[in-house]
Design a protein around this nucleic acid. Structure first.
Length: 425
RNA sequence: GGAGAGGUUCCCGAGUGGCCAAAGGGAGCAGACUGUAAAUCUGCCGGCGAAGCCUUCGGAGGUUCGAAUCCUCCCCUCUCCA
């Protein structure tokens, strides 16, 4: 089966420059690249679709090229954005590039040249301006660029020259990879369409060769929110920025309507198995969400962490039966025994402090369950503060040794946020 | 460079001397209802133990008993002109 068909079937494809051409091109092992912006020191859930697309490609014998934008990051892509991004310093970009490279290695095998990871800073940073203008710039029609959909929003609010230039740089990247690495396929988010097409045009003019582009849908959740955004901000792939437990919870809490779509996109479970989900409704979907969460967490953080997160959730919210015939390819343990010390965040408090007791609202603020003491007070006054499942009656109720069983207690804010406290030492 | 418009609390956006911690909407949070879902309804939504106090309306000064609101300078954005 052609990878393209798989990508289409799993919902990865929004637009293709030339479906037949791409299919033919992918008959043989080829290279295929996606660029990642080094705007932060970690990727987030939004990057998962491109990453997994490359992983699928690799499974089908193609060679993924991951391009980290150490050069383009200096400029900033205006595509589809309302505002200009802050310019990062070279130093920040260098650090981010390194972090992203390490992260990407978790998803794609780079050994023995099965995949490449490149930094476009290597060829962009030393470009000679005049030469670049004469070689590359002359192939671009400003009229056409101005008409590009990706710039439209910015044409309304304002666009400066450095950003306007971005398209040339990305087109040049594609051309560079085509000529140096024999890579004629670029993929990216749908907002990259204009940049990708620009590269294809450049390759045609400079090399008289055909290149191809595939774009992914820009995902939003069923409620219309951007994928991977929560109140706390982005859901990151790095365990330091978003703990595996939080990450797991993000997926458990997806909207019913998103379950099937996400299983196809974010897991490697076979499509035939996922099809079963279509017939499920209501609470029946909960087991699917658990498996979805487990699978994605496993792909991102590894099996150990995924298990810990699953156990932690089971401990807080109770176990849920997972039918043996539901998504059987998943390696999730279906007879989970909940262990002590599962992945619930915890804080230890000294004996001396617990002796007299700490006012509940202070404790909630201190362990990070609430942003401030005021917020904690409001929470508890509204009946959203619990200790070991019992609602805390007043915000300044002291929490002391007598409230702890076996030296620990489970604090809960609202329905989903929990934190364990235990006696220090 | 010239002319004009504007920068308000997470976002959008009112407010043009005291009644402003600042309308309204969105987001978010809690409660009810549930299924760790959605929708709906109710409450909350700068900080500080409360009365009260402290910090906030691009930045720095100034006028005033009192400023987000008036004045000066500066920074930034947009529109039109060159």
């Amino acid at each position: 089966m052609n990878v393209l068909d798989i990508l289409v079937a799993r919902g990865f494809v929004e637009q293709i420059t030339d479906a037949e051409g791409v299919r033919r091109h992918l008959e043989n092992p080829v290279s295929c690249y996606i660029g990642f912006d080094p705007t932060a020191d970690s990727l987030h859930v939004g990057s998962l679709v491109p990453i997994l697309a490359l992983a699928h490609l690799q499974r089908h014998g193609h060679r993924p090229i991951v391009l980290v934008g150490g050069g383009t990051g200096m400029v900033g892509d205006p595509s589809g954005k309302t505002e200009m991004r802050k310019l990062l310093t070279r130093e920040q970009i260098r650090r981010n590039v390194e972090a992203l490279q390490a992260q990407l290695a978790r998803f794609i095998r780079f050994e023995d040249g099965q995949a490449l990871i490149l930094d476009n800073g290597d060829w962009l940073l030393d470009l000679n301006y005049i030469e670049f203008l004469r070689d590359i710039g002359r192939h671009f029609s400003v009229n056409r660029m101005l008409a590009a959909e990706s710039y439209r929003m910015r044409l309304e609010t304002g666009l400066n020259f450095i950003e306007f230039n971005y398209m040339l740089l990305q087109a040049y990247d594609f051309y560079y990879l085509a000529s140096h690495y024999d890579c004629f396929v670029q993929m990216g988010g749908n907002d990259q369409w204009g940049n990708i097409v620009a590269g294809i045009d450049l390759i045609r003019r400079k090399m008289s060769k055909e290149a191809y582009g595939i774009t992914f849908p820009l995902l939003t959740t069923a409620t219309g929110a951007k994928m991977g955004k929560t109140a706390e901000g982005a859901v990151w792939l790095s365990a330091e920025k978003t703990s595996p437990y939080e990450f797991f919870q993000y997926w458990v809490n997806v909207d019913d309507r998103d379950v099937e779509r996400f299983l196809k996109l974010y897991t490697f479970l076979p499509l035939e198995e996922i099809r079963v989900v279509e017939g499920l409704e209501g609470r029946e979907l909960n087991a699917c969400k658990t498996i979805l969460a487990y699978e994605v967490t496993r792909i991102v953080h590894g099996r150990q962490e995924a298990l810990k997160a699953y156990e932690g959730a089971a401990k807080v919210f109770g176990r849920r039966a997972l039918p043996a015939d539901l998504l059987p390819s998943s390696s999730i343990p279906r007879d989970l025994k909940v262990d002590e010390g599962a992945a619930v965040p915890s804080t230890s408090v000294s004996q001396e402090e617990l002796e007299p007791g700490i006012p509940a609202f202070e404790l909630f603020a201190r362990v990070g369950l609430c942003d401030s003491k005021s917020a904690a007070r409001r929470l508890i006054q509204q009946g959203g503060g619990y200790i070991d499942g019992k609602r805390i009656a007043s915000f300044d109720q002291p929490i002391g040794l007598t409230d702890l069983k076996d030296g620990s207690a489970l604090l809960r804010a609202g329905k989903k946020k929990v934190h364990r406290i235990c006696v220090a030492g």
